[in-house]
Structure formats: structure tokens, C-alpha cells
Amino acid sequence: MRDFVDNLTVFFCKEFKSFFQNKMIYVLLPIYLIISFAFTLYFSTFMTVANPAMQQFFLLQPKIFLIIVPALTMRLWVEEYKNNTWEILLSQPISLTAAVIGKFLAVWAITGVMLLSSCGLWIISAGFIGCDNIFVLANYLMTFLIIGIMCAVSAWAAALCFNYVGAFLLSWAFLAILFAVNFDNYINDVLMVFVDNFNAKTFSDFAEISTSLVSGEIKAAFVFYACAVMAAALWANVEAVEYKRSEK
């Protein structure tokens, strides 16, 4: 277990630093902040409605990270494939799972840094118009969780490609599927037939879950959903790298 954690830490640190070393963060961070603030001010009702928890800002975040996350994850495995470092990596006595989780955590942490850098809006809003600070903090955490799902799915998709463009597009497509696919109505229809007086529920509608998580009530079912999807995507990521190795 200790080795696993050590390996994971090494991968995390290496990957996290690489975002600074290859200057990617210095490009993506300003882009993220500009898009994020511009959309919040110009394309939402942020200015005109009472906003104790800055919901208009948080509701936009999953949509903005739909572009940012694939850009961050596209190089996670492609770089290893290109430089053939993954062959060396996998021949070492290290756990592939640790590598996958370490890389995923690094990307997730980078999105955390990005999200954290938007705190300026929170600070000035709290100073001038007043905020429900616990609610805002919870919204930051929940948005981070939602982005975590996106990072896991995107990292997995990126592991299936050998080039940057392919990895970006595939990651984006997977995230788009995650957003668009909604089987809730079908599941509800089936359950309504079998369960007496069943009331329609939200099961896997990602868009609705991401909205619900920043509405002031953190539902355990949705947190479980987020963790489960993240875990499944990470498992699929490990399998995808294994598959790629076997293919080679």
C-alpha cells in the first residue's frame, strides 16, 4: 500500500509540475478566467438578480470545463505514447493503477487551481453585495467534484488515442455524451410500471445532477454517483492503457 501511495505521489508531482514546466497552465488559466468571467457577466443573469451563492457563475462552470478539461487531459498519455516512455514505465515494478490515479489527480488538482483562481469574484461579491459564504464554499467544492468526473472520463478517453488532436476530440466527445445522454425518463417509465406510486427521480442525468449539486443541498445520492462514475472511469482508464500495451 505504501508503495502504491509513493508511486501515486511521484506520478502526481511529475504530472502536476509538467503543467507549469510546459507553460500550459499559463495559457489555459487566463483563457479559463476570461471565458468564465465574461460569460458570467455578459451571458447570465449574474448582474441583475440577487446572488447570495453566485449560482449563475457555478452553473456555467461544467460547460466551460467541457473545453478546458480535454485540453488538459489530451497530453496525459499521448506524451507517454509518443516518447515511448510508457514502455519503460510499464516495465518498471510500479502499479499502473497508481500511474493512472496519479495522473488523474494531477489534472484534477490543476482544475482546482483554476477554480480557486476565480475566488476574486467571490471576494468582491462578498464585500459589496454580501454572499452566503458557506453556500459559496459548498458550491466550489461541488463544482470541483463535478469537474472531477469530467477529468476522469476525459483522461480515460485520452488514453485511447496516440495523438493530441485525436485525444482532445475523443475526450470532448465522451464528455459531450456524458452531458447529453439521459436515460432517466426511460428508467422512470419502467419503474413507474413496476413500483406502485413511484415518483420520477434523477438517476444519471449529468446536467441535472451538476445543477442540483450547486443548489444548496448536497445530496448523498449524487455524491455517490460522482464518486462511482469517477472510479469506473479510472478503472476503464487502466484497462485502456493495458489494452493499448497489448495492441503494441
Binding site: 436515460f183 444519471s204 462511482a228
Partner: peptide, 14 residues
């Protein structure tokens, strides 16, 4: 697989 996992996670979570 991911679709099945996401739906299953939603149902189990509920």
C-alpha cells in the same frame, strides 16, 4: 460501459 456504470451508480445511489 460508462453509460451503464453511470445509470447503475445513479440507481444505486438513489
Amino acid at each position: 460501459g460508462i453509460v451503464i456504470v453511470s445509470v447503475t451508480a445513479g440507481v444505486i445511489g438513489n
